[in-house]
Amino acid sequence: MLELEHISYALPDGKQIIRDVSLKIPDEKFVVITGPNGGGKSTLAKIIAGILTPTQGSIRLDGEDITGLGITERANRGISFAFQQPVRFKGITVRDLLSLAAGRELSVKEACGYLTEVGLNGVGYVEREVNASFSGGELKRIEIAMIMARGTKISLFDEPEAGIDLWSFKNLISVFEQMHDQIKGSIVIISHQERILDIADEIVVIADGQIAQIGGKEQILPELLTGAPAPCGCCKGGIC
């Protein structure tokens, strides 16, 4: 179980990005975080991964306070994070990255297996450098394949659908469903996509740095889809 308790985050200039967010992500839950752009979703993901340190509040993983732990320690305790904008590397191949993610040297066949699951077919991909020759969509899929190779108890994805074409989108949904079944961990996805929201156990709406709404998809999704005004944080899920 991942627990965020009264998390706040402010920029050095004092601007408040996250305001007193408390959230529990139970084991094996599929949680989708959504909400308006600029609402603080990505910041929250970076706080969970240890990339940003909250100015207030604490984070617990399976009862252990991990607030003071760095990125590496959190990764080794079972938190994986797929970036919204994947990183390129000169000289490091797709297989290298998948091997680092898996924690052991993967064979070409094993690496191909992960790539095939995210819709990148062909041995040609495996030994390619993860450099500017890849398209944004391909990099996003490699990013997802890395999370699959890690197979940790918390898998965090920041807008995995961005840059993925519509044809592949259906496959992406089944990748997440399959991952959920196989890894038996919690999956947290930041997304604006209705079809991703539709496979969530729980939807968290973040707006203006606060949790505006939280609940099952049956409760939250219809409200989001009816075109009701975007909820704001100040009235805790109400409509101002």
Binding site: I71, A75, N76, I79, V87, F89, L97
Partner: peptide
């Protein structure tokens, strides 16, 4: 070295 490259590899469990 780009900071984001270090961070990415650290999220895979590597030390800095």
């Amino acid at each position: 070295i780009a900071g984001e490259q270090l961070i990415k590899l650290m999220t895979l469990g590597l030390t800095e």
